[in-house]
Design a protein around this nucleic acid. Structure first.
Lengths: 348, 348
DNA sequence: GTGAAAGCGCTAACAA
DNA sequence: TTGTTAGCGCTTTCAC
């Protein structure tokens, strides 16, 4: 809308001023080659003059699709997500698509509302990066034939694609790294208990332990919440144990940061007393004291994959979605070091 | 839209199935009391059954407004913004408004595109939290009579409100705190040089120095970028000086984190060798080593203020906007301590 | 209490 | 090359 006098402008108004019909205005705006250059110029001048912008509700209504993709994330406060959003939004902007973001803050009602927003806005697809997924709201999406991309549901179907993270391999790397440093007692601070995405990470951990012939101490596996608080309580519990791990794997970097905090607060040091390894490799990981060793889940690549899946869904409506895989890599920094027990013998 | 067979559903379809007219369906969806309870029930059942959601493009088109507010931020990777978004989105959801977010990553074209998105989507107002604001894109908003809320432009006009942060007071607190700890040589790592929002912070710093009778060393004022990298280079420059400050004020927490990193990397400690004070009080500030002393800019309050301003603009179209003020408070943690020079005499 | 119909701003046949 | 027109899905008078 632009304004003349006090009225909101539309293509009709532009047309009248430029002395053409609204169809021509539409053609000019959409770059049709059927318009005579001088007409184009005349119309364009009016558009610029009046700073006119076409109403997307009208085009969306007309076309039946919005060129908008929805993104649902659990917690925008976890730096991993902003970093992902940054990559994702950039891709969308470059491809003339809009983003509709919703965060659910682990509230079931917020999830409902988010899905509703996606549905009423007629998004062309939805990315669901939420960890704990309830099936009910998803059904509304599928029922309405909205292409869906999930993370780590490891399940594709008509309208739904999935991208899985190869946790087993990544965590294997981390465990191998720790073993090399002489650690044999490794703890894990994960997320909530339910049968969710978080399980893939714990299971990956257990498998890695077995693979490298390390003993699994059940009390070394603590529950967290993907936030720093979970890292703190988890670490506090670990410190309360008679027999303690010498290294801790955290379900994400925030958890690792919480663990680090508790360790220092109790007067211990990293990696002197404990090695800590995170997951995600958020931007800040390298800025911490000590810089965090962590498994990198590349956001740029994830964003590209997700976008690819979305476009696939858009173009192959009703087709069974694709299964994509993401690799992780170990970024060794300074929060992992030689195990204490392993060090002592040397200094004798 | 919901589906029957293979067709996309609309109110007409629902109406036909329920044996009513589309007008009645509309009434039911909008909770009109003019519909007989049994009719309502019958219609609602069909709606639920078919998981029907009304098309927001149609309602927006009809009503001429979208119930959407736009939010433009510079860098979603700076934790302050996600934390703000979290509060802001919550308020919007509670008030049945939608959010359209755009990040500009300090690219002029992205700013253009963002404003364009806001305009075509017919948002009912825009919040511009970007630090470095060019006037040109803003004009398009004002010209199209979109209520605008800016941060720290310190200038209101028809259609535009502003919320300013009382930097002077906050920085005064920080400087007073440092003086009390015996610091007399205080450095500052800010943001880019231009005549922008960042100036309010440097100016506040200079004024505070004067107010507390502290000397201003021009070479102690370094340029940053509101990110960790700026903190690192700024601190590196400060360390290269023959005469160094004993305390550093950073333009935001990310800058402070970068400074902290460089300090530790060079073998110094905080607050032993240098005191560091940040700005924002991001969630992670208390999790760092050492926990960061910082000026808190409360996001919840900011979100509420911004929302209030937005609603004001919506209701008092064409009126001159309001000027709001935000206070900051000093959160003393462990990155600030007694000045080195001040300590020595005591230990003699 | 419910239905018929006009119209929000835009696009795409179809006409000219 | 340009104009006319129907209609996207919804709301809202105005009838009944």
């Amino acid at each position: 809308m632009a304004i003349v006098g006090d009225a909101l402008m539309d293509m009709h108004g532009i047309a009248k001023i430029a002395g053409v019909s609204s169809a021509t205005v539409s053609r000019v705006i959409n770059g049709s080659k059927l318009v005579r250059p001088e007409t184009t110029g005349r119309v364009q001048r009016v558009i610029d003059e009046l700073k006119f912008f076409p109403n997307s509700s009208a085009t969306t209504l007309k076309h039946g699709k919005s060129s908008t993709y929805g993104l649902i994330i659990p917690d925008i406060t976890n730096p991993f997500f902003p970093e992902f959003i940054r990559c994702f939004e950039k891709i969308l902007v470059e491809n003339n698509r809009d983003m509709l973001m919703a965060t659910i803050d682990s509230h079931a009602t917020r999830m409902q509302q988010s899905v509703r927003r996606m549905l009423v806005r007629k998004v062309d697809g939805v990315v669901l990066l939420a960890a704990e997924i309830e099936t009910e709201p998803i059904e509304a999406l599928i029922h309405n034939k909205v292409p869906l991309v999930t993370l780590e549901r490891r399940l594709v179907a008509p309208w739904v694609s999935d991208v899985m993270v190869n946790y087993a391999a990544g965590i294997g790397l981390a465990v191998a790294h720790l073993k090399e440093l002489g650690h044999t007692k490794i703890g894990y601070i994960g997320a909530s208990a339910g049968p969710t995405i978080s399980n893939h990470r714990v299971n990956g951990f257990k498998k890695a332990l077995k693979k490298y012939g390390l003993q699994l101490y059940p009390e070394f596996i603590r529950v967290g919440d993907y936030r720093t608080t979970g890292g703190q309580t988890g670490m506090t519990e670990l410190l309360a144990l008679k027999e303690r791990p010498t290294a801790i794997l955290a379900a994400n970097d925030l958890t690792a940061i919480g663990a680090l905090r508790t360790i220092y607060q109790r007067g211990y040091t990293v990696p002197g007393d404990f090695s800590v390894i995170g997951f995600d490799d958020i931007d800040l990981a390298g800025m911490l004291y000590p810089p965090l060793t962590t498994l990198c889940l590349p956001r740029q690549e994830l964003a590209e994959t997700v976008y690819k899946a979305l476009e696939f869904g858009r173009e192959h409506k009703s087709a069974v979605g694709q299964q994509y895989t993401m690799k992780t890599s170990l970024v060794v920094r300074e929060s992992s070091g030689v195990a204490k027990a392993a060090k002592r013998p040397r200094s004798r």
